[in-house]
Design a protein around this nucleic acid. Sequence first.
DNA 1: AAAACCGGCAACCGCCTTAAG
DNA 2: TCTTAAGGCGGTTGCCGGTTT
Length: 253
Amino acid sequence: MTPQSKEDMDVRKGPWTEEEDYMLKTYVNIHGEGSWNSVARLSGLKRSGKSCRLRWLNYLRPEVKRGNISLQEQLLILQLHSRWGNRWSKIAQQLPGRTDNEIKNYWRTRVLKQAKQLKCDVNSQEFRDTMRCVWIPRLIERICASSGSPSAQPSTAYEKTSLLPALSGTSSDSQDAELSSVSDLTDCYNPPSNSNNPNSLQNGRGLWSENLGGTWNIEDGVGFQATEGGESMESVWNEENIWFLRQQLYDMI
DNA sequence: AAAACCGGCAACCGCCTTAAG
DNA sequence: TCTTAAGGCGGTTGCCGGTTT
């Protein structure tokens, strides 16, 4: 047996124990990140360098935010995915504290499930249109509703229409606004077949690229760009931006 | 009460890219 | 320029806890 194959046999796999977590955390705190093979070798952990890196990035890093994905984060994920596709790490960079793995899991367990229920291919135009024209606006509405601030409400002609009838779901109370659940998207789905959405699925074109892609552009710094610099989601989703979102929404419909 | 099923998530795998020698 | 090791990324798997039958 070669030393290498013996080493392979010694490599532990499966769930990490508390003790292993402690060892890894302690080692990284002292020596810093990087050189993961060295970490694995020198920390005394019987794990591969890859495994150490993954455990640190997805779980042990102090910045890692755990728990439910907020509506704002869901919205960002939908938007960024429509722009970048399955570029999970790139999407994760826009959501401080969230890992690519977490976002990927969210997408697969929530969004793909919805696509399945709708019996449509996630790569289809129909699915993209549903996402852009129904789910995203619905999420924006719920975010606006949950902000609960009078100054975030429309004070112009927009006000007359109140919330969009076609997009209003049954549960827009603020209490669940921060909760992530399957119902977030389920609630968002009303078959977009009526005339409230003149540009909608009938012509098979997406609104997003036409109306939002150029103006509500994360990379262009319009709207809520600031996450890349580490700004918190709370400051990004301020009243001004919520009002901006609302305007964008009404422009879409 | 127990078995079957399902959803969520942590972790692994394999491929690709990059950097160092 | 080529080789190789390490890191990064997306896809997939398998476990576990909760729910349904």
